[in-house]
């Protein structure tokens, strides 16, 4: 199962990214494990400085911007 972590501190952009991730997952109909990471220490442990961010299976894929649904779908289906 794909592990997705959405990193953010609860600002508007972070919420938009989270809902885009949820929409992408719904449209793809795949089983995933989505985790919201909002704790500062946990975010820093992952070495991320620009929020919001998406980590898929331990790899940082999006940082510092709100990726749209098609892009997240491409990332989740193994594209670049």
């Amino acid at each position: 199962m794909v592990r997705i972590e959405v990193l953010g501190m609860g600002c508007e952009n972070c919420r938009r990214l989270m809902s885009n991730v949820e929409a992408a997952v719904r449209q793809l109909g795949i089983a995933v494990d989505i985790k919201k990471v909002e704790d500062i220490a946990a975010i820093m442990e992952r070495g991320v400085m620009l929020l919001p961010a998406i980590i898929v299976d331990g790899k940082l894929r999006v940082s510092g911007r709100v990726a749209d649904v098609p892009e997240i779908k491409r990332i989740l289906t193994g594209g670049t």
Binding site: C14, I40, M44, M49, L51, P52, G64
Partner: peptide
């Protein structure tokens, strides 16, 4: 540029 919520991780990252 950064969204206001990145101010915290950037700050920590620099100081650390």
């Amino acid at each position: 540029p950064f969204c206001s919520c990145s101010a915290v991780p950037l700050f920590i990252g620099f100081v650390e």
